[in-house]
Amino acid sequence: MTGTGLELAGVSAAYRQAPVLHELDLRVARGELLVVLGPSGAGKSTLLRVVAGLQPATTGRVLIGGRDVTDLRPGRRNVSMVFQSYALFPHLTALDNITFGLEVRDVPRAAARERAVTAATAVGCAHLLDRRPGQLSGGERQRVALARAMVREPDLFLLDEPLSNLDVELRTETRGELKALHARLGVTTVHVTHDQTEALVLADRLAVLRDGRLEQLGTPDEIWRTPATLFVARFVGSPAMNVVPAGGPLTPEGIPADLPPDRQLGFRPEAVRLGGTGTAAVVERVDVVGEDAYAYLRPDGGPVLTARVPANSRPAAGTTVRVAVGWADVHVFDAAGRRVAGR
């Protein structure tokens, strides 16, 4: 199971003259699940469409399983895609939707049917086969779309925000099933999402995209613990990481004396400690989410900081509290927003 599943070498793409991807380099190992994460307009879907061949790459090469597919039409790349809208054929039953790709490739009807039933069973939609998309719920449609993508045994799965049209409960459930399915099939998968939880849960590795450029590529742990840029640090994590200037009102405990003053210091809301010693800050607002509470604090003359505290020991809004953060929890970035190694 070693080798390259997908490789992008210097791939650029444009949408009506406007560049969307800038010379992107990316390698996905065979059998790996790569999640592409980024805000809207970062070029995530474009990346997927270029890999699928639905949109041309203006520069660079696309290799799938070591095979250069840059100049091949979509049907010759042996990839399967699940669209955000699922793109089910409204006039066909779930079964006919699943067998579509086999039938246009002249697989005998009986064999196609058999494989469709196997795929449908794997994603748990075997009981829906004679229904039309109009008779299915969002989650059921999603399963049919997945079964349709699986049935052809492609070299590469492309999933374009497949969970975004599901309600929260179903999304969490389906997310787990997707992960189990990938573990079982072991097909190289590129999964695009803007949902960071989904990304962190699913990914073998995570690619964070911003304005058509790769900000960071790494395991979810690396992305979380050592964000390469301020953008990644603030984009992954909710509420977002706090950022203060090095010389600011809040000085982390144990800060080195020789730290250049243009550094920016980031720390997650979980790292903020309230009470005891530290900088004085006014509690502007407190949001309670079940067991957790998010307190929005304004130190004198500084930006608003977010602190995550247990709901039963939360401060009251309007009071003044002492805020402190340990140096070990601080990420240091230079003026341009790049991570500075070794703190």
Partner: peptide
């Protein structure tokens, strides 16, 4: 919907298949 046609392209459906199985029924 254009995505239905994109899906057909990914499945390497011929123009005739697209006409017969997608466009005409729709």
């Amino acid at each position: 919907p254009p995505d239905v046609y994109e899906l057909a392209a990914l499945e390497d459906a011929t123009a005739w298949d697209v006409l017969r199985r997608i466009t005409l029924p729709l």
